[in-house]
Write a protein that binds this DNA or RNA. Structure first.
Lengths: 202, 202
DNA sequence: ACCGGAAGTGTCAGTGACTGACAATCATTG
DNA sequence: CAATGATTGTCAGTCACTGACACTTCCGGT
């Protein structure tokens, strides 16, 4: 069952990324709002209806890669040693973001996506929503880990705020270092060591 | 000129808040997505076209009060003493949020709005966008103040991250204390003292 | 080779948010 | 009263998105 489904999943993903690539190049050319779904579908060679069978909204095309990154970060946090302090774990969790810059192709792609997002208020809103989801994911992981480690549940408000603070550092570093991995790493380290909580949970 | 415009502004604002009240009660009844702009316009007694002359989008109706709160907070931050540490200033900047809970009518209103937002993913995205705007506003104010005080510009990444951290505390406290001013104050204090940066700019 | 269903696709019609253009109305001022 | 400017309604149109239905293709069983 799982294997059969998997094969189909692969081809579905292939179509999705073909659509995403096409759409992104159109967005980069004409802008997001100025590109209609009809145009994307035509460029890919399918009907508008089929486009919506692969992406539930026009916005989702842009966040295809962002969503995958979220999953990567969640896995990274899960793989951190349980006795590491939470702030340090969060800092390490963000490493894959910098690692993406290593591949020049990925870097160019990410930069283009970032520009598309920045130019559209609607996309910016959606992007923040994804960051919020990331934040929720990480918060739950930290909460669960702290509970497993200390035996009792830590203050959820503080943990949520702390993860929010870490994500704010990530966001600030991303905004400041558009594309340069060196600058990103340095900025993130500076921000995160400045914001390091005095009393560290876990 | 300013006075003449002001009079017209007042009446415009009156119509806006009449629309907002009507719309919010419809949203509370049927949900945001399920309420059409046509229905709102009809309930207020105007054409759909005129609705869009007062609010640039359906979303904006909901954020009427949120936007006003943003202006209030910006003013509050500006009125803080220049030699106060930034983190403390930010904490005091958030006081009006708690103060809103004092008035039972406002509290009920805010709670209703919060529920409407929470039930709609689209509104949640827009809400985060408003928080981001608040964050940008506060960041600029802190940067400007620090520059005025120390004579040289502080690290923008760190300041942005710090404001982001403070806003994360605000957000966490808001989520946790839905409507109870006591709980809100205590939660915010706990979160903000846990996240207080070791090295404080300004 | 034939048949059956499952999965993917195109077409079409419809809804709802939003915009531009234009004409009618209404209040204000000279 | 007339000219002017702001406010409004009407109408037509665009675009994202959805549901329904018919059609093709591909595949395993007979």
């Amino acid at each position: 069952m799982a294997a059969g489904g998997s094969l189909r999943e692969v081809s579905r993903r292939a179509v999705q990324s073909r659509i995403a690539r096409t759409a992104e190049s159109l967005f980069a050319d004409k802008g997001f709002e100025e590109t209609t779904v009809d145009e994307i579908a035509a460029a890919v060679g399918m009907s508008q209806r089929s486009f919506f069978r692969y992406f539930s909204s026009k916005d989702d095309v842009v966040f295809d890669s962002v969503e995958r990154l979220r999953v990567t970060l969640a896995e990274r946090l899960a793989s951190r040693p349980i006795d590491e302090c939470a702030w340090e774990s969060l800092r390490r969790t963000f490493d894959p973001v910098a690692e993406r810059f290593a591949d020049p192709e990925l870097r160019a792609h990410d930069k283009a996506v970032q520009q598309i997002i920045d130019r559209s208020p609607r996309l910016l809103a959606a992007y923040l929503c994804h960051l919020e989801r990331l934040q929720r994911t990480l918060t739950e992981a930290i909460l669960e880990r702290a509970t497993r480690r200390t035996g009792r549940e830590p203050d959820p408000v503080v943990v949520r705020a702390m993860v929010g603070g870490a994500c704010a550092c990530l966001h600030a570093a991303t905004l400041h270092a558009t594309g340069d991995p060196e600058v990103f790493d340095v900025s993130l380290d500076r921000a995160m060591s400045a914001l390091r909580p005095a009393s560290m949970p876990t």
